[in-house]
Write a protein that binds this DNA or RNA. Structure first.
Lengths: 242, 242
DNA sequence: ACAAAAGTGTTCGCGCTACACCCATGC
DNA sequence: GCATGGGTGTAGCGCGAACACTTTTGT
């Protein structure tokens, strides 16, 4: 097929370029010390939308695909190396999403575990998802879509592994799930559902109790370190025998 | 930000261009008269991959987003106007997916109802999904991903509306679901599941019985003509009261 | 009457929620 | 002992699969 677009649009010459933008989520304590779901944003210094907060990302290079590009730019630009999950959310391609340039963006959902502590650049910070500052361009929309994808996948996949620390107690895992979902989660059921699905494994060791005592909690880890669909069909399953 | 990529790759000058490719499915009888799930393909006349079968699509124009572009190209190039559902599947961006040009493709899942009868161009035809001819480039991969997305969504959304005719009997709808899923479906359960979810509505009229008799079937239609998630959460539902 | 096709009723099992109850530790 | 937090047991229920049974037509 063709060798690129170069045509007139609204009066000036336009190339189509391709960028990636990642909404990277993690669970960590907010200013008040309560666990919240946060997104990584950096504050734009230049127009368009100078001063507003943007998702990390940038142009895709000629020798990389969009997935590799997203991983690379998170590592290079905001020093995120422990991105435990990264998946495409969709293409954002409104012709007017950026002024004076045609840039088609691939949006990503990224996840960073609770026990990672990346050194963020000066202009970069975690922001609670339910209290975002003014966002640049369509980045708020992308973050919202990614957030909803995360919430949905917590139910029918093992995606929690990517938010949880390497090992954890059921109570800690409960707080991660409750924070990401935005509502309380019963630790009993969390235990049993993930165990039945074969996603949870005791490490054998136990955590030290708090200052006021309490039974020491058993430590667990996820058995699988990549996304799996654990609950594929609700209705219209294939019949029992062949 | 930027004004397009123009850089050296593997020795020659490359622009990044953006195309859409749609895997459009429909249920219709095959040569032997049995209902099968088909994909729309056209046979390439030129290199690369001349003679192989390709998904319909093409370059995105400067003043349209990718979704509008996919709809437009299906209407213009293969005369598909009754595309009842069209959704993004993902971005296919391997740097070497096309020789001598950098083209990033957005893949789509498209659906055409059973009672549509588009006039296809000469080089274009429906092909059974489980018996595809040699496909061009990565188009087979895109079709496969779209097919799996369709199968998954039949379970937890109302996406069947986009494959079914405007009105139908439960038996006809059963054949549509069974064909798209690749296994038999119990008409009793199909009825009740879709009815409980509020997706099905009797028209009041009935279909004429076959030549050998039988109780005349009631006609139904889908209540909603766009995609809805009807079965959102399996596990970790929000608690009953606030 | 009989065959054919549609629709209804019923049983069963599984998975998830909710909640009561039992266990282990620090003070 | 008692408070604190972790883990176990269990009842209930909603949903879906499977299948027997009834209804309505044509021959």
């Amino acid at each position: 097929m063709p060798h690129g677009i170069r045509s007139s649009h609204a009066g000036h010459l336009v190339d189509t370029s391709v960028e990636v933008l990642a909404a990277v989520f993690t669970v960590r304590p907010d200013a008040a010390g309560r666990p919240r779901l946060h997104v990584l944003l950096w504050q734009r210094a230049r127009e368009p939308d100078a001063g507003r907060w943007a998702l990390p990302g940038g142009l895709v290079l000629p020798d990389e695909d969009v997935d590799a590009s997203a991983a690379r730019q998170l590592a290079e630009k905001v020093d995120l190396t422990r991105v435990t999950h990264l998946e495409q959310i969709g293409v954002f391609s409104d012709p007017d999403r950026m002024p004076d340039a045609r840039v088609v963006a691939t949006g990503f959902l990224g996840l960073v575990p609770l026990d990672a502590d990346p050194q963020l650049p000066e202009d970069t910070a975690w922001h609670p998802v339910d209290d975002l500052p003014p966002t640049a361009l369509d980045h708020g929309l992308i973050a919202d879509r990614a957030h909803r994808r995360l919430q949905a996948k917590l139910s029918y996949t093992n995606i929690g592994f990517a938010l949880a620390p390497a090992t954890f107690t059921i109570g800690e895992l409960r707080r991660v799930y409750a924070t990401a979902l935005g509502h309380d989660v019963d630790p009993t059921n969390l235990q049993r559902i993930l165990s039945r699905r074969g996603m949870l494994e005791p490490t054998g060791s136990t955590a030290a109790p708090g200052p006021s005592g309490g039974r020491p909690a058993a430590m667990y880890r996820f058995t699988i370190g990549e996304l799996r669909v654990t609950d594929p069909f609700a209705a219209f399953r294939p019949p029992a025998d062949g």
